[in-house]
Design a protein around this nucleic acid. Structure first.
Lengths: 212, 212
DNA sequence: GTCTATAAGTCGATAGAC
DNA sequence: GTCTATCGACTTATAGAC
């Protein structure tokens, strides 16, 4: 099932990934992949048969990368504050290294071609998308240990957390022109962003000792 | 500059909007717009000259709708807790009524065609995107009143807030198969989501009185 | 204003020479 | 394996009859 691929195939695959990530299914032209990869357009079909097969391979790979990074970023530590901090750090670093990944996944899911839908169904069926439950269990444990407040539906915290991490990478094109200078030092910005997310979610913004 | 438009033009515009929102620039075909609107394809060009002009009109309208809703959802109340609660309520309701709007805006911004970039530049230049500053000012006032903790860079709170509200609408296609049953009553879900966002951001999750 | 027919161009895919 | 040439389907846009 898993065919060994040569260096040339891999090179094409990498380039094709870049183009698909930038332009999506409809926006990507085989000619552009060929040009950017420095190969003949016919070679694309020689190696991958069709645009659909090429795309399918790439979507699967990227979607798994995205979902895996959610899983890998979550590693229970001594206390929930550390677990949370680590998750934000790891997940944000992955996003920094793959800034277009969330947009790609979201876009393809929303345009919802048959390839995408089938891919998601397979992964769910194979039980490869079970991070959420691990996270929710950990929240309940921290609750039992008296570290955090009781949550009626812990899954909402997961949404708040992921949304907070991802938003900046989705809204970049709006944020950049609106806040010129904010990103003059992207690395410094991301570090502040990480700290801010942790503070907002863990401590909230309400003044302590205030009973309003 | 603002031409009066007849009912037929408006009807086509509404249908075209639906198609562009669903499929994006490259995915949308003039034939599909014509079919769904129940008019001849040639009429589209008669009224709007080209696909580009049609798209430009629609993107401008939707992008402004999105940005305006951010602005309109923000109305200073007596205290910052109320202001925040109101923002989450209003913005979430708008998203419920236009669930595909964030995806559309994000997708088109990321594919970054010339039309989109020019549109954003115009709006920034015309000073029509200044909500953020109002929000940040209000945060500083609440800080001065001693309602909330000091924030080094208030803009981060804005990102956390918007990201928390939007994430669910972007990740729907992943969330639905992963949490079957969660959305059996969408209205009830959204109400819980609103409350959860407020609690997470305003109070945080850390147990009060715990000094860990 | 509305329709049919078609021009002009693009894109995925393949045949066939080397 | 690699390239050129080209087929066939699709898409935007328009010409021209009514």
């Amino acid at each position: 099932m898993v065919e060994p691929i040569g260096p040339k195939e891999e090179h094409i695959l990498n380039i094709a990934m870049q183009v698909f990530v930038e332009k999506g299914w409809h926006g990507t032209k085989m000619q552009e992949i060929a040009d950017r990869a420095g190969v003949n357009k016919a070679m694309l079909h020689y190696y991958f048969r069709s645009k659909e097969r090429l795309y399918s391979t790439i979507f699967r790979q990227l979607f798994m990368k995205y979902m895996s990074s959610l899983s890998d970023s979550f590693q229970p530590e001594q206390d929930f504050a550390s677990t949370l901090k680590q998750f934000i750090n790891r997940f944000s670093d992955m996003l920094r290294d793959n800034p277009q990944l969330p947009m790609f996944v979201a876009r393809e899911l929303s345009e919802g071609g048959a390839i995408v839908q089938q891919c998601v169904r397979e992964l769910v069926k194979d039980g490869k998308l079970q991070t959420p439950q691990k996270f929710i269990d950990e929240i309940k444990k921290a609750e039992a240990r008296g570290e955090i407040e009781h949550m009626e539906e812990p899954v909402h915290f997961l949404f708040t957390l992921i949304g907070s991490c991802i938003y900046f990478f989705l809204a970049g094109p709006i944020i950049k022109p609106l806040f010129p200078g904010l990103l003059s030092d992207p690395d410094a910005f991301l570090e502040k962003r990480k700290e801010a997310i942790f503070k907002h979610l863990y401590f909230g913004i309400k003044k302590r000792g205030d009973n309003t």
